[in-house]
Write a protein that binds this DNA or RNA. Structure first.
Lengths: 139, 139
DNA sequence: CAGCATCCCCATCGATACTG
DNA sequence: CAGTATCGATGGGGATGCTG
């Protein structure tokens, strides 16, 4: 069990509405899609892994190198989570020594789309944020 | 000090490139804008607070009610962080008893834009993800 | 090479109680 | 009403070592 399921938080209905849900009200109140997704991509490693795999599929060690300082433990765990979510595929080649290739799925690729929008926003407003922080800290 | 500064992670340059940075290379390698932003909005409360304030400014207690089950402790702390980032303003009315109104800034409002895109994605693909999980767990 | 198991730390968050 | 202060539990995640 990776973690507890997303909270069925009252404000999540707000979030869902904010997300421009279709006409019909969400039938399953026990899950908030927004939080469900954000819990994943909001973490450090999942995002970096998705980005690392964007240009091309990679093997375990190559993912580790691409991401940089992730431990094998977290890499394994995060890859599992992403595979479980259908964001990437895990293909084992029974060579000697074994090699495992990870590749984005269409779903994983499509996720990078809105993430890129967010990244663009971050890049655009980063200076403003940093300035705001400095001003705030002068107090 | 809210938390440690964002890691100057090698893959962040990848992330930055992915975010379609302008021609010039980022001069400050010690900060990754993408992680900087994601560290915030990836957390539970900041997002819910931004969403709660989107329709209209709210006072402390009203934010708490709007968000739902957040403790005063986390609410205070998160509001501070968001204020520090320039995402919202804090205006104190010296009435008796005192009241404090929190309102989104233009920056905070603009942040909800890409977040909405992400939320829309989450809403759209949530079923697919849940299905992938169920299939994965059948093993 | 890929990945699992173990240990352990410490940051985060909730609960509670108190103040201006 | 709008916080601050303090304590305590919980679990995320790093380091290390072992296996197929």
């Amino acid at each position: 069990m990776p973690k507890a399921p997303a909270s069925n938080h009252p404000a999540c209905t707000e979030a869902a509405r904010f997300a421009a849900v279709p006409p019909g009200a969400p039938p399953d109140p026990s899950v908030c899609p927004v939080r469900d997704v954000l819990d994943r991509i909001g973490q450090k490693w999942p995002l970096l892994i998705l980005i690392a795999l964007e240009p091309a599929p990679l093997r375990f060690s190559n993912v580790q190198r691409a991401v940089g300082d992730i431990s094998k433990r977290m890499l394994t765990q995060t890859l599992r989570d992403l595979e479980r979510d259908g964001m990437l595929t895990r293909r084992v080649y029974p060579t000697k020594p074994p090699s495992v290739e990870y590749a984005l799925t269409a779903l994983g690729r499509s996720a990078l789309d809105p993430i890129a929008a967010l990244a663009a926003w971050a890049d655009l407003h980063h200076d403003t944020i940093r300035a705001a922080r400095q001003q705030f800290d002068a107090a």
